[in-house]
């Protein structure tokens, strides 16, 4: 029998984790390990992961936990605590409807209802074809333009329920054009 089999499986675990994440993020995590309070960068790391993948998948959360040496339960706890992080993949286009006070007073609820009706989905859901996600948003801070919607990262306002079908049509047309020019 050999002397003592090493039980340290860290190299394998690390390798599996590294495969799940882009190189830049792995590098960032390893840089943090060298500094004071590396665990405090967890939220920053999750931001980067979401930026890259569009959402936080189970495999990525696990990889982050391993590389940052933070229990998976805590990583999952943080990811699910903050509204900004999403655990499911979003649609191609995300429509945020601001439900801040100013927008509420100026009729955001009616705009939201029209979107729900037109897309047939509720807040936090994605259409079956994966084209649209609908999100209720905390104040976007552009209250002067209330009611405001944000299509991906483009803020628009003031929005009215009547504009809703037009906005969706335009997005679909854009999508079609992109596909046509692509093929």
């Amino acid at each position: 029998m050999s002397k003592q089999q090493s039980t340290d499986n860290w190299p394998e675990v690390r390798q599996q984790a590294v495969e799940q994440l882009p190189g830049a993020i792995v590098e960032f995590i390893e840089q943090c390990q060298a500094e004071e309070h590396p665990e405090s960068q967890l939220i920053a790391v999750l931001h980067q992961v979401q930026n890259h993948f569009g959402h936080l998948g189970e495999a990525q959360l696990d990889a982050v936990a391993q590389l940052m040496r933070i229990p998976h339960a805590k990583v999952a706890g943080v990811a699910s605590f903050y509204h900004f992080f999403r655990l499911n993949p979003p649609g191609q286009t995300t429509i945020h409807i601001c439900l801040g006070t100013a927008c509420f007073v100026k009729g955001a609820e009616r705009v939201a209802e029209k979107f729900r009706e037109e897309l047939g989905i509720d807040f936090g859901e994605t259409t079956k074809d994966g084209k649209f996600s609908l999100e209720a948003s905390r104040c976007l801070g552009t209250c002067g333009l209330a009611p405001v919607i944000m299509v991906d990262d483009q803020v628009q306002g003031p929005a009215t329920p009547d504009q809703v079908p037009g906005i969706i049509e335009k997005l679909l047309a854009k999508d079609k054009r992109a596909k046509n020019s692509g093929s």
């Binding site: 405090s40 939220i43 931001h47 509204h83 900004f84 992080f85 905390r138």
Partner: peptide, 19 residues
């Protein structure tokens, strides 16, 4: 931050900076 209103409260904010 990552979209949690309560983090404006100072002790919650501290926890959030700590990750």
């Amino acid at each position: 931050g990552a979209g949690a209103f309560v983090c404006g409260e100072e002790t919650a904010l501290i926890h959030s900076i700590e990750g």
